[in-house]
């Protein structure tokens, strides 16, 4: 399953807190898609996911908008 989490316009660290909560209720193998226009939020999410050991892919879908996909590989 692919989940989309609405973090549009939210400042740090609310997206990470929301992702932590969302990932808890997701099953292993699911992925979480997030979109943000905050450069720091995109960076913070990448660093956080790497530390937690979740594979994360980052792409710039438009000028100053980042789309992040986190795969839940473990609990």
């Amino acid at each position: 399953m692919e989940y989309y989490l609405d973090i549009w316009g939210e400042m740090c660290p609310i997206p990470i807190i929301k992702s932590q909560r969302k990932l808890k209720v997701m099953a292993i193998g699911d992925s979480l898609v997030l979109e943000t226009e905050h450069s720091c939020t995109a960076r913070g999410l990448v660093v956080w996911a790497q530390k937690e050991g979740y594979p994360i892919s980052e792409s710039e879908v438009a000028a100053g908008i980042w789309r992040l996909t986190i795969a839940k590989t473990h609990d």
Partner: peptide, 14 residues
């Protein structure tokens, strides 16, 4: 880096 944009206030609480 082609990352500039005007980022308006999206929610009143902020």
């Amino acid at each position: 880096a082609s990352q500039w944009r005007f980022r308006p206030l999206r929610q009143r609480k902020f």
